[in-house]
C-alpha cells in the first residue's frame, strides 16, 4: 500500500543576496518526499499561491502544490495543523528551520504535539517503510548516522545531510497547478509585535591552534569530539545541578 507523504515548504532566503528562493532544507524534504512517494507526494505551503518561489519547488517535477491561502500575518501552524488533521498522512517532512519568518525551528515540534505523533529530528534519509514502521537515518555530526525505527505516522525534520534537491526546471514549474485551499485567519499574535533587523555578527570564541604538526591538525579536524570531561548528573539535587552549570559558565567565562 502506498504511503501518503506530505512535504511542507516555505519561502527561503538566499544567504548572500537575501533574495527569495526555495529553502535548502525544505527542498531536500521535497526531494526525499519524491523518492518515497513519487508524484503522489503532496507538497503543502501555507501562504499565498501567487508566491513565485512556489514555482521553483514545482519545477522539481510536482504536478501541483497545495496552498493553504492565508495572510502573511496569519499563523501558518494553524493552517497546516488543520490540513494535516483532515488528510490521513503517514509521513510529514519539514525542514529543520525556516530561512525566513520566525525561523524558530519549532514548527515540526508544535505539529507533533498537536497531532500527537512522534517526531524524528534531523533526518538524513528514510531507508525503508514496511509493516507500519519506517527505518530512518538520523544525521549526526561529522557524517555519522544513527538508524532508528519509527511507527507511522510521524513527522520528520530534514537535515542538510539529506540528498540535495534536484534541479528546478522552469517549464514544469510554470505549468504546475496551484491548488488553493482556505487557510487559517488566526493572527500570529506573537509575531505581530516583532520587528525584523539584520542580525549582528555573533562574537566567536577565538580558535587557538594547539597542534604543532600537520598530523595533529589532521587529527583535530577529523577526530570525533571526545566528551570525556563532561559528566551526567541524574541523581543530584536540583541545587547541585544548578551549581554545576553555574560553575561551568564561570569557568568558560560566559559570566563573570
Amino acid at each position: 500500500m502506498p504511503h501518503k507523504v506530505i512535504s511542507l515548504i516555505s519561502v527561503g532566503r538566499h544567504p548572500q543576496s537575501g533574495r527569495s528562493r526555495r529553502a535548502d532544507q525544505d527542498s531536500r524534504a521535497v526531494e526525499l518526499g519524491l523518492k518515497l512517494a513519487g508524484t503522489d507526494l503532496d507538497v503543502v505551503h501555507a501562504g499565498s499561491s501567487q508566491e513565485p518561489v512556489l514555482r521553483q519547488y514545482a519545477g522539481m517535477g510536482l504536478p501541483k502544490v497545495t496552498v493553504l491561502e492565508q495572510d502573511e500575518s496569519a499563523d501558518a501552524l494553524v493552517s497546516i495543523a488543520d490540513y494535516l488533521k483532515s488528510e490521513k498522512a503517514d509521513i510529514v517532512l519539514t525542514g529543520v528551520r525556516a530561512e525566513s519568518g520566525e525561523s524558530s525551528g519549532m514548527t515540526p515540534y508544535i505539529l507533533s504535539e498537536q497531532l500527537g505523533w512522534p517526531i524524528v529530528a534531523r533526518v538524513a534519509d528514510i531507508v525503508d517503510i514496511k509493516e507500519g514502521e519506517a527505518q530512518v537515518l538520523l544525521a549526526l555530526p561529522r557524517g555519522q548516522r544513527r538508524q532508528v525505527t519509527v511507527k507511522l505516522p510521524f513527522i520528520a525534520s530534514i537535515d542538510n545531510a539529506a540528498e540535495a534537491a534536484r534541479q528546478s526546471a522552469f517549464g514544469p514549474g510554470l505549468r504546475a497547478k496551484m491548488d488553493s485551499q482556505k487557510g487559517s485567519t488566526v493572527e500570529d499574535s506573537v509575531r505581530v509585535d516583532w520587528s525584523e533587523a539584520p542580525a549582528k555578527a555573533r562574537p566567536k570564541r577565538l580558535k587557538i591552534v594547539k597542534a604543532k604538526t600537520a598530523a595533529d591538525r589532521f587529527k583535530a579536524a577529523t577526530a570525533k569530539p571526545q566528551g570525556g570531561s563532561g559528566k551526567v548528573m541524574k541523581n543530584e539535587s536540583a541545587q547541585e545541578q544548578a551549581q554545576a552549570i553555574f560553575d561551568l559558565l564561570i569557568e568558560e567565562k560566559v559570566i563573570r
Binding site: 519545477g59 517535477g61 534536484r166 534541479q167 526546471a169 522552469f170 517549464g171 514544469p172
Partner: peptide, 13 residues
C-alpha cells in the same frame, strides 16, 4: 533539457 527536464549536467544546475 534545462527548462523542461531540469537535467543540466555537473555544476550546471
Amino acid at each position: 533539457l534545462t527548462m523542461e527536464k531540469g537535467e543540466t549536467p555537473n555544476k550546471g544546475s
